[in-house]
Simulated scan of single mutants.
Amino acid sequence: MKPPDLFPDLPRTAVAVVFFRPSSEQVARIVARFAGRMPVFVYDNGGIPPEALVRLRQAQGLTLLGEGRNGGIAAALNALAEAAAAAGFPRLFLLDQDADAGIETVRALSLALDRAAGAEPPPAVVGPAPAPNPGHKAPRYPARPDVGPRGGLMPVEFLATSGSLVDLAAFAQVGPFREDFFIDAVDLEWCFRAWARGWSCWMDPGTAIPHSVGRGTIRARFLPVAMPDQPLFRMAVYVRNTAYGWRLPHVPARWKRRQIAYLPLQIGLYWARHRFSPRVLGRLLTALAQGLAGRLGRPADAPP
């Protein structure tokens, strides 16, 4: 018997999930929370356990996309947005496999997006506040200057994709996520582009979910600075994409100045964490040069 629709006020909102090397438990959690209750689009970016793939294929109301190859988060999100829009859904709730969210989160954000509907510029996305997650550095979403709060929501420069509710009509106007970024800073660049093209991004302080970025946190010994500890290829892509962002006219100068000051410190902290390895420093400096030169795309050392 089909489970009851817990929230009949969400008949045209779909859930989109990107999986990359998830555990069977992570897949089971997504299926249990959403399948049969809301339309679900899943993208297989590779590494889904065989028994979990069977669960996905058998789940009610779930559409499985992707060929099991890691094409990067941006390409996966774009494919999910395209599929949901083609199916007639005006809103899409984005999740990664680590996010701890359920239908209640979708409903809260849907109501938040309704409250932001009269804002100028109009809203493209609304997302939750970052909740504390032990062992991980919570992201921070800087307030957007010169735009006031609305309906208890805060205008922010950018949001993480995971946990965000996207208006797909706005997405069509802003354009897709940059697939040549591959993974890091994809959401940041898109939100700055949204603002530049006459749309807005909002955070709902009354809704919060934890985020798990990286394997832990790197902290400076003598400064109040912390950053996620990530695999080398991820850190290199972050460095590359951040440097490339300095070339983009829609990224505000205030953010560029901040990152120009902050990125060398991050590189130094990461290098120190890896015992001042020449290989690590060389990889990060190469990534910096690639970003400044505009050489993007899939990293050679990205996992398949």
Rank of each mutant, 00 (worst) to 15 (best):
P4L: 14
P4G: 14
F7N: 05
A14G: 07
V15F: 00
V17T: 05
R21S: 15
S23D: 14
A28H: 03
A32S: 11
R33V: 14
R33S: 11
F34C: 01
A35D: 08
M38K: 11
Y43F: 12
N45F: 04
G46H: 09
G47W: 10
P50S: 03
L56P: 01
R57H: 05
Q58L: 08
A59C: 03
G61T: 11
L65V: 11
G68W: 11
L92R: 08
L95W: 05
D100S: 08
A108T: 12
L111S: 03
A117M: 04
G118D: 10
E120I: 10
P123M: 05
G135E: 10
P139F: 05
Y141T: 01
D146R: 13
G151N: 07
L153H: 09
M154P: 02
P155Q: 08
A172I: 04
F177N: 01
E179K: 03
F181T: 01
I183T: 06
A185T: 13
E189Y: 13
W190T: 00
C191T: 15
F192L: 04
W199Y: 13
C201G: 02
W202R: 03
T207G: 06
T207N: 12
S212E: 13
S212D: 07
T217C: 09
M227K: 05
Q230K: 12
Q230P: 02
R234K: 15
M235K: 12
V237C: 10
V239T: 15
R240C: 00
A243R: 09
A243Y: 08
H250M: 03
P252G: 03
P252K: 14
R254S: 04
R257N: 04
R257V: 12
R258L: 09
I260D: 11
P264Y: 07
Q266E: 15
G268Y: 01
Y270D: 02
R273A: 08
F276P: 00
S277T: 11
R279E: 06
R279C: 01
V280T: 08
A289R: 06
Q290C: 11
A293I: 02
R295W: 03
R298I: 07
A300N: 08
A302Y: 12
